[in-house]
Write a protein that binds this DNA or RNA. Sequence first.
DNA 1: GTTGGCACTCAGCGATATCGAGTGCCAGAG
DNA 2: CTCTGGCACTCGATATCGCTGAGTGCCAAC
Lengths: 340, 340
Amino acid sequence: MLDERKLDVLRAIVEDYVSTQEPVGSKALVERHQLGVSPATVRNDMATLEEEGFITQPHTSAGRIPTDKGYRLFVDKLTSIKPLSGAEKRAIATFLQGAVDLDDVVHRSVRLLAQLTQQVAIVQYPSLARSTVRHVEVVMMSNTRLLLVLITSTGRVEQRVIELAKPVDDEVVGELRARLNTAVVGQHLSDAASRAVGLPEMFHQDDKGVVAQIIAALAEAVTDDRSDEKVVIGGTANLVRFGEDFDRSIKPLLEALEEHVVLLKLLGEVSSPSLVTVRIGHEVPHEQLATTSVVATGYGPGEQVLATLGVVGPTRMDYPGSMAAVNAVARYVSQLLAEA
Amino acid sequence: MLDERKLDVLRAIVEDYVSTQEPVGSKALVERHQLGVSPATVRNDMATLEEEGFITQPHTSAGRIPTDKGYRLFVDKLTSIKPLSGAEKRAIATFLQGAVDLDDVVHRSVRLLAQLTQQVAIVQYPSLARSTVRHVEVVMMSNTRLLLVLITSTGRVEQRVIELAKPVDDEVVGELRARLNTAVVGQHLSDAASRAVGLPEMFHQDDKGVVAQIIAALAEAVTDDRSDEKVVIGGTANLVRFGEDFDRSIKPLLEALEEHVVLLKLLGEVSSPSLVTVRIGHEVPHEQLATTSVVATGYGPGEQVLATLGVVGPTRMDYPGSMAAVNAVARYVSQLLAEA
DNA sequence: GTTGGCACTCAGCGATATCGAGTGCCAGAG
DNA sequence: CTCTGGCACTCGATATCGCTGAGTGCCAAC
């Protein structure tokens, strides 16, 4: 059904359409690529490809453009992640090297991705639940007001102020701090709450209530849905190259970018790092974004996936290039996290 | 030169143009407003207004649109901040009431502003330098690694990890913590560094170096330029109503929104709260945004101005409405900060 | 299976015509 | 001196028409 040459034709169509943004015809194809056959032959192949649903015509007597299915085949079979140039690799390294803390890493990554791909970049903060605890600190601000500071292995710092129901003693807090740390340091945050739940029992009767309140606050901070919804976006200005069809393609995207929940759905779950996920057009889990594609991958120290990053753009995007950039940035950030 | 009626005409032109987005002619004006005169008379007035530079014609045989100068006069003389409806006030209150911490307040404020004005909203975090210190904490994560946590009166929490040149003792840290707090709590952050600079002298010779390093890190964290550049934006999707002139009005704005430095320049310095600043078209300190206006005001507990918030939109925006919304949100946030 | 030839389709473009909102000016009334 | 109605004029917006050319599908021949 689809012999080698037809696949070549599809690949050529995708490449040309992506770079010119215009429907590509049979004649232009044979001129720009060494297909070794005549336009007429290409036309026959195109007819087959169209029957199979890989390409389509915007209108009769126009060239062909790839369908979502066409892009899918292209991404799956017809291309491999092309290695970045040395200059690009160096740019990534030097740009991310200067980061001073996690916030900085995340923000620099978005900028970098946006610049490399000329698209909208999205970077999710490392998941709290999947990180491990590096340190927990309980700070007394007054005898009825505590500050809970939680530091994860990725360098993420979460804090929360607790107003206590009744005053608490200095020594109790000191003891709690020590016990809390031995109980949860090194543990995954998802387990931390259960590890700490027995702690109140170890205190004097009078203090159990307060301690329980603090533990509860900690548990809440950890399981707070919002904490895993933290994402940063960048490169919105690149939307202008999207085309003119304003209301149908740009507006919904801008709206989606404001809704962090939607964004996270877009990035989706990624099973293993070093595996770049591509969602094309209708595969994107958001009706309004049917002309949009997402290229994403996971990152995290070692083989863990603590969060996701990627780019969003029109279906007619440079998939090999975007995949390469997303992959490279994810790898580099992972490395940074592993070192820290 | 400009009698009462001519001003009425200008006001009517601004109002109509803002609501219809189309050049307004003499006939339409008398129909929609009770001016009590004939179109011909209005035409004469318009001719005068045009001579004076308050309105202009996009092309001959079209209606008039206000110039920047026209909007300026409108804002300064022809309108007052219109009070919000009870429903709007209640919406602000209930929406901001639920905020759990400063981050939350800031993020909710942007959303709220964007929704109320149907424009792009910008909220700056309370300035560190102008806040006072509520608490400083020094946490030992290991004997060569400290975490510095700084809490301001506005509830803003800054943290920084310090890698020490040589190991430090538990007791030294404890002493430093105590001395640091007595030295800087209640002080303005801009003064904090100078208050702390003498502290190393109070320690044993062997510890002076380490203490000095910590103080230096604290000083750096406080004076870090980036810390005052923290802003949050929202309502980007509202840009779609901007009009079709994509490249000339939307692209530069999107680009500006990515540059926090530019944004802060846009918001500008505000002398006193309860004073709403309006910058129209060319008054905006950014060449590319000549068709854009900014409505901003300061906020902070009491009479202090700790930061700025506002909206950005096309020059043809609803000034009275935006000014009212910006003012109301700023007041409410200020109140929240004063209570905390 | 491939190729050249050929008739056909149709979006895009420019030229032309029409329409009407809006203007400026003027003469006359208040 | 101000306001008004009348009127000729301007010119952007919109619609219509015809042309052009890239691109197609089909077919007969290689």
